[in-house]
Structures are given as C-alpha cells and as structure tokens.
Amino acid sequence: MTETAQEVESNKETLVSLRSVTRSVTLPDEQQLHILRGIDLEVQSGDHTAIVGRSGCGKSTLLNLLGLLDVPTSGELEFLGNPAERLSSNARARLRGSTVGFVFQQFNLLPGRNALDNVITPLFYAKGREFWRRRELAMDMLDRVGLAARANTMPNMLSGGEQQRVAIARALVRRPRLILADEPTGALDVETGQAVMALLDTVATETAAALVTITHDTNVAALARACYRLDAGVLSPLAVAETAGVSA
C-alpha cells in the first residue's frame, strides 16, 4: 500500500455501523416475520459497496436502515456516531436530508415538475446558502450528469436512462456523504444501466461519498469494491471475484 493510499485509508470516517442488527415485523396473525438477522456492516466514506440477493431477502429493508428511514428491532445502528434509537424521527429526517442521497429503482421523479424542479426539491429542506442558491446548485448538478440541456423537460419526455440521471442529480445535489442506490439499473436496459452505474461511481468517487448499491444484477455488483450477499436476512461477505458466479 502506498503512502497516499495509507493516508486515504486513515482519513476514512465511519458513516454507518450496524452491529447484530435485526429487523422483524408482526404479521396480521401475530406471528413475527424476521426480515434481517444479526447484520454486521460498516460503511465508511469513499466505500463502494454492493449488496446482492434475491427478491424478498431483505435488501430494501437493509437500505432503509442504512438511510435512517427505519430503525432496527434490536442491535446497534450508529449513524455518524449517533445511536439511531436515540435520534427522534425529526432528527433522523434532518440527518438523512443533509447526509444521505437516495436513488430508486423506479426513479421516483415527482410528476408535473421538470428535471430542474425535481433536482431542486431536496434543496427545499436545506438551510441558508444551499436553499437560496438552489437553482444554481441544481443546474450545476444537472450539468454534471450531462442533462443541462434537458433542464426544462418533463420526466415523461425523458428516456429511462435520462430519468435515472435526473434522479442521480437529485440524490447528489446536497452533496451527500452516503449514496444509497436501490436497484438503480433495475428499470434500464443493460447498456444504459452500465452507463448509469459508471456515472454513479464517478460522481461518488469525485465527491468522496460512500456508495451502497443494492442489486440482484451481478454485473452491477461487480463494479463495487466490496460485496455482500444477503440471503434469508443474513449478510455475508462475498469476494468481488465471486460476484460473477453469484446466482441472485
């Protein structure tokens, strides 16, 4: 490891840490459904992590926990050193707004708003200069994803790839330290999906943000520097080289 690499490694900060985390829900017949069991995971700044698994194995639930959209049933979840269970719903919302950027499978662009207005939306929850300079910041981010010329276009007039690029611009406009992508290429063809992932990876690297991608696409998982497999609620590390052989 070179000196520079060592420096980078030592400057890394733990963003989210999960220790023995479980998540279960009570079903209508009073039975407990255990979605996640004993999850141990640490995400540091600059990490690019992929979590693969079959549908229904708990990938989205894990992503919700990482993004403070949900809290564990048991175990410890620390976000930037703050125990999640001690944070109020509003504190979690504020922390999420300033630190986490979500990219969804179905893009989830807000209808009736053009690309620029969609990218502006997260900045409504920012304070000070970020709010007042929202248009300029949103335009810069659209430019970054190569869609400045389509700023005034409505989502339904954009292709799937373009919509996902707008969603990425929206997720990154507040310069999050953690980007959570839930099946970001799930609604795209292979070629467009690869372009979108390359873009996500580039922007995350440029901004030193951690990128956690949830996918069942082994090609997408192969782009990550660390890979985990989630099976029946249990998370286990996977050598990146193995991803090609994972049957998701």
Partner: peptide, 16 residues
C-alpha cells in the same frame, strides 16, 4: 402519498 414518501427521504420532517 408516494411524493410525500420521496420528500421524507430527502429529509422533510413530519412538521415540515
């Protein structure tokens, strides 16, 4: 409902 959920993911508090 979906839009409200998306806004919550951007950091909108319940009060907001």
């Amino acid at each position: 409902v979906r839009e409200i959920g998306i806004r919550r993911s951007f950091g909108a508090t319940s009060g907001r």
